[in-house]
Design a protein around this nucleic acid. Structure first.
Length: 863
RNA sequence: GCCCAGUUGGCGCAGUGGUAGCGCGCUCCCUUGACAUGGGAGAGGUCAUAGGUUCAAAUCCUAUACUGGGCACCA
């Protein structure tokens, strides 16, 4: 017999062990069978998983399990991402705490240490996924930097190079001074920061008045190669063609005209620094201006800054502004808010820096993904993400893929004095040296759906599993990852990597703030699992995972889910208690069924299709809620209570019939819940399956629930609705009169109501007789739809109070009638109101009238 | 500046034309043989605002306000 309360820990451990032993989540190509494939968004090896991973992976697991139950060959590929800069930063922090830097170790020793760290980290992460119940195909574990993936990366690089889509060139790139590397455009975040706008006087070289320019960053002036004005700007027109001197260093630069300059901003004079600003770079190109670097890759000023050379950006800023003021160059300083770019990984301010980098041309690669989107070959859920995705592809810029870090795939290009560079995995021979940069981590991530199946080899797996079926990931990496996988998929396989991408939201704290270590509001999924059980965490997340929406996560939701798990446990316990010890099969049959049986079967049938439809629409929250309400409010609260009538009675066909309904509906519900709560459902299924006539070793292999016949029965649902209404009315009356819940009372009924036995059972009635003659003395009245109940309570009833209570009911009823009458009037007057709806409204209106009349009648008798 | 999403009871959220729902919290009652991780009964919302379409609007349209996000930015 089951314990009184569900204890997750032993069940989870035992079930995981049995699933592993049976290799339940392993997949091999099966000829003629269409696979359902998902590749995991590989977590970075930066530490442990957070609650967002729990959401993302539960979502995928639910889809995988669901498809497996539907009979598909499901394959979910696990793995981790080496995580480039993010991971290197973690290691550098570690080193720093030891008082070292990566340069102290040297490249080789550093990479060795990274490998060791990676091994540990992978173990942690995969262990956590396992613990979460993720039915990943563990034999297919991949890593973005393992040998097969390295081959894929090399092949991709080489192919793109040969197609002329990769080039090296000196461009202005986003440079993170702290990380010491270039970044792509989407790895920088923009934020508005408070700053100042400095108006600086540049004197004429020949001694004239000169010009005043406005800038937020005076330090960049050492890289100025011109001052630009708008050709329509009369204030400065006379300056065109003249030369001015950069303050403090007195280097001569020309005044040029360009319509880019906004003469309403600042002073109308724009200092042009091609080496440190994108717009200035473009201006420089137009006017063939030289680019002078004033700031180096280390964030310090260069020789171009004369006396300030060697100072950091920040120190130089202070020194330069102070000197400008002291020497009278500073005309004005005003408060100014400006957009600053920050490194997404470390938050430091990005320096636009001219440097030699590798780029992947994007315009051509974006063509096929765009076509696929427009052709409906690729869909994003929820759909509103499709527009930003399209816009990004349309306006795409070349992708800077080289990073000046050590952790990553080294760029497979070799150089030798006097030779053309060669693309090769290994050294082409003596005297050749390899490029020291590594590739952007997203380069290997972009190949993930291909590389995990052995591409570039034409493997059986690749042929079978590619393209994958669904990608589930957070919307924050739609450009970084989703779009790039599609580009690579089209480029190398001629097909999208997946026809569907499902975007999950961000798990925030309960007040809606993003979780972060510094805020101290991080929720550890492991802690939640330990405290409340894995199924509870999974259910809590799924129940809130509305498509694309962020979740405000409150631990209370897990407690609620834990209670639900326990409810499920106990409902099974109840059913088992009412079954014989020696298993017998209770198959569903139409014989001996009562109204309540037909009612729950009708409801159950609807739930089966709705749960499936919701999951098919990638709406797990709808499925979870549907199942929650069905199980708790309908199966437990009503059906089990009604079943007790027969279960406490004598053995016989009727009792076996109710057992069959209990067993079959419960077993099916467990299957429906399994994708969301795998552990408890497996445990309970094992206990119930002999009675359900099933023999699958695992619930996952038991198939999706189906009903042999069509049990849909709207008439019974309506009929039972009336019974429930009557029960509620009597219960309400009892409660208001403070009748003890256990006390059985006598009642008489005026009007027609069916299923007296149900009323006796659920409303705690001793008897229910049809009213003969008048209303019983000393009684209170409950008015339900179609029937009036009087319960005799000698000595208990305060007539004044009873009248008051009924008057309140009457007021409600009158209000109700008013609304219904207005609606009916509207509809009747309208020519285009559907007849069916009008009839419905009429029926409701008449019922309300009848109810009011019966209330009035009762009140009249009382007074 | 452009675009997208959101605005529903104390809190978190469902609800795409026909009498406002759920979870949590709150109030009262109940340890009745599945479950107090439970049961029963309640209180609590003019569905952001203003217009419009419609017989009928939380739901469709248009504006406005606020919140969040994406994109692009004037140095």
């Amino acid at each position: 017999m089951l314990e009184k309360a569900y204890d997750p820990k032993p069940v989870e451990e035992a079930r995981l062990a049995s699933w592993d032993a049976a290799k339940l989540s392993h997949s091999e190509p099966v000829a003629g069978k269409k696979p359902y494939t998902i590749v995991i968004p590989p977590p970075n090896v930066t530490g442990a998983l957070h609650i967002g991973h729990a959401l993302n992976n539960t979502l995928q697991d639910a889809l995988i399990r669901h498809h497996r139950m539907l009979g598909g060959e499901s394959c979910w590929v696990p793995g981790c991402d080496h995580g480039g800069i993010a991971t290197q930063n973690v290691m550098e922090k570690q080193l720093k705490s030891e008082g070292k830097s990566r340069f102290d170790l040297g490249r080789e020793a550093f990479l060795e240490r990274m490998q060791a760290w990676t091994r540990d980290c992978k173990k942690t992460i995969l262990g956590q996924l396992h613990r979460l119940g993720a039915s990943l195909d563990w034999e297919r574990e991949a890593f973005t930097m393992d040998e097969p993936r390295a081959r894929a990366v090399f092949h991709a690089f080489k192919t793109l190079w040969e197609r002329g889509l990769i080039y090296r060139g000196e461009r202005l790139v986003n440079w993170c001074v702290r990380c010491g590397t270039a970044l792509s455009d989407i790895e920088v975040e923009r934020e508005e920061r408070k700053g100042a706008l400095y108006h600086i006087h540049y004197k004429n070289a020949d001694g004239g008045d000169g010009i005043v320019v406005a800038t937020t960053r005076p330090v960049t002036m050492f890289g100025d190669t011109a001052v630009a004005i708008n050709p329509k700007d009369d204030r400065w027109k006379h300056m065109v063609g003249k030369k001015v001197l950069i303050p403090l260093i007195d280097r001569e630069i020309p005044i040029i005209e360009d319509s880019y300059v906004d003469f309403e901003f600042g002073t109308g004079g724009l200092k042009v620094t091609p080496a440190h600003d994108q717009n200035d770079w473009e201006l420089g190109e137009r006017h063939q201006l030289p680019a002078i670097k004033a700031i180096g890759p280390d964030g310090k000023l260069t020789e171009a800054a004369g006396p300030y050379a060697g100072l950091s950006r920040e120190k130089a800023h202070d020194a330069v502004t102070a000197d400008l003021e002291a020497k009278g160059y500073l005309v004005k300083k005003e408060d100014h808010r400006s957009a600053v770019q920050a490194c997404e990984r470390c938050g430091s301010v990005i320096e636009p820096l001219l440097s030699l980098q590798w780029f992947v041309k994007q315009t051509e690669l974006a063509k096929e993904p765009l076509r696929a989107l427009d052709a409906g070959e690729f869909k994003i859920y929820p759909k509103n993400w499709e527009k930003p995705y399209r816009d990004w592809l349309v306006n795409i810029k070349d992708w800077c893929v080289s990073r000046q870090i050590w952790w990553g795939h080294r760029i497979p290009v070799w150089y030798k004095e006097g030779e053309k560079p060669v693309v090769s995995l290994d050294s082409p021979g003596a005297g050749w040296t390899q490029d020291t940069d590594v590739l952007d981590t997203w380069f290997s991530s972009a190949l993930w759906p291909l590389s995990v199946f052995g591409w570039p080899e034409k493997t059986r797996d690749l042929d079978y599993y590619y393209p994958t079926s669904t990608l589930v990931t957070g919307y924050e990496i739609m450009y970084l990852w989703v779009a790039r996988m599609q580009m690579m998929g089209h480029a190398f396989m001629g097909k999208p990597a997946f026809p569907v991408a499902v975007m999950n939201g961000i798990v925030r704290d309960k007040s809606g703030k993003k979780m972060s270590k510094s805020l101290g509001n991080v929720i550890d999924p492991l802690v939640m699992m330990d405290k409340h059980g894995t199924d509870a965490l999974r259910f809590a997340l799924m129940a809130q995972a509305f498509p694309g929406k962020d979740i405000a996560f409150d631990e209370q939701s897990v407690v609620g889910a834990r209670n639900f798990v326990n409810k499920l446990w106990n409902s099974t316990r109840f059913v088992l208690m009412n079954l014989p010890e020696t298993p017998a099969v209770y198959a569903l049959s139409a014989d001996y069924l009562e109204a309540s049986d037909r009612w729950i079967l009708s409801r159950y049938q609807q739930v089966i299709s709705r749960a499936q439809a919701s999951l098919d629409a990638y709406d797990p929250a709808a499925a979870a809620q549907e199942l929650y309400v069905f199980l708790w409010d309908e199966f437990c609260a009503w059906y089990i209570e009604l079943a007790k009538g027969r279960l406490t009675g004598p053995e016989g066909a009727g009792k076996d019939a109710v057992r069959a309904v209990l067993v079959q509906v419960l077993a099916g519900s467990l299957k429906l819940l399994h994708p969301i709560m795998p552990f408890v459902t497996e445990e309970l299924y094992a206990a119930i399956k002999p009675f359900a006539g099933e023999s699958a070793e695992f619930i996952l292999k038991s198939g999706y629930p189906k009903l042999g016949a069509d049990w849909s029965n709207p008439a019974i649902e309506k009929e039972m609705g009336k019974v429930m209404g009557a029960v509620n009315a009597i219960r309400s009356l009892r409660s208001q009169l403070n009748v003890p819940p256990g006390l059985k009372i006598k009642a008489v009924v005026d009007g027609e109501v069916r299923h007296h036995a149900y009323l006796l059972l659920l409303a705690q009635l001793e008897s229910l007789e049809p009213m003969s003659g008048g209303r019983p003395a000393q009684s209170a009245t409950a008015v339900a739809d179609g029937a009036t109940f009087h319960i005799a309570l000698a000595g208990v009833i305060d007539f004044a109070k009873e009248r008051e209570r009924l008057a309140k009911d009457l007021a409600k009823a009158e209000g109700d009638i008013e609304k219904r009458a207005a609606k009916l009037k509207n509809m009747s007057a309208a020519a285009n109101a559907p007849a069916e709806k009008v009839a419905e409204a009429k029926e409701q209106h008449d019922a309300a009238l009848a109810r009011r009349d019966r209330l009035k009648e009762t009140i009249a008798v009382l007074s």
